[in-house]
């Protein structure tokens, strides 16, 4: 078990070193969410029809676009696995005396490292433009943990996809087709109550929806009644995709 955790931490360290060497990628990843909160948010604030529960609209969507950007990064994390499959990296990792579960979970949670790095840029920018966060360090840390593990889940989902599609072009297509429904059929930009019932039903199966809800309650609203359900949903999601991705990992190699 200790070895298992240690291997996961080695994978996280690798990712941290990669992020350190290529900051440009990180910066380009945060451009989009920053546009959402600096342009889209203020523009839509004039529309009073969105029931945000008394919170300014930009504040309302800040957790939503934050999670959107970290989720997108994570979903396309599978691309790295497709790439590493084309090179020999995965073959070599597969031949090391470490648990294959630890490799898959470690690589998945590596996406969490990138997600945290993104959040560390987006949140200060949001503060600068006047978004009011709850000032509580514990809440902030909890939100980061949720982002970390949710991103790991989405990355695992993408590893799972990668094990089936195996080429970059197809992966790009599927990744693109997946990310926008996840984003729009959630409470990232508006409460799900505004959606037609059928879409609301879909939202209950959308892990991004629960992630946004949890992070919003911890950073913005301080309204925790849904938090246990959110956390439970993310745990179930993680366990499911971690197991499925590990089971299919051998397929990526063959």
């Amino acid at each position: 078990m200790l070895d298992f955790l240690r291997h996961i931490f080695v994978m996280l360290e690798l990712e941290l070193r990669r992020v350190k060497h290529d900051r440009l990628e990180l910066y380009t990843r945060v451009v989009q969410p920053i546009l959402w909160i600096t342009v889209f948010g203020p523009a839509m604030s004039g529309v009073r029809g969105i029931p945000t529960g008394g919170i300014p609209y930009t504040d309302y969507i800040t957790p939503g676009v934050l999670i959107q950007s970290t989720t997108f990064t994570s979903i396309f994390f599978g691309l790295i696995m497709v790439w590493e499959r084309e090179t020999g990296i995965l073959k070599r990792l597969y031949v090391t005396p470490t648990s294959r579960y630890a490799t898959v979970i470690g690589r998945s949670l590596s996406a969490g490292v990138r997600a945290i790095a993104q959040a560390l840029i987006i949140i200060p920018v949001a503060l600068l433009i006047g978004v009011k966060f709850i000032s509580n360090v514990l809440y902030l840390i909890s939100a980061f943990l949720i982002i970390f593990f949710a991103s790991g889940g989405f990355a695992s989902l993408s590893i799972l996809i990668a094990s089936f599609v195996k080429t970059r072009e197809r992966f790009m297509g599927i990744g693109g087709a997946l990310t926008f429904p996840l984003f729009f059929v959630s409470n990232a930009l508006y409460p799900v109550k505004m959606m037609p019932p059928i879409l609301q039903r879909f939202a209950t199966f959308n892990p991004l929806h629960y992630t946004v809800d949890a992070v919003r309650s911890l950073l913005i609203t301080g309204e925790f009644s849904n938090l246990p359900i959110d956390v439970a949903a993310i745990i179930i999601f993680d366990v499911a995709v971690f197991s499925l991705a590990t089971a299919s990992f051998g397929k990526i190699i063959e």
Binding site: V10, E13, L14, H21, T87, I89, K91, R92
Partner: peptide, 22 residues
Amino acid sequence: PQEISVWTDVSGYENLLIYAKI
């Protein structure tokens, strides 16, 4: 393996360090 099996976006030292840890 026949294909490249090191991470190209970190240094040589870091590659070996990660493998030493693995």
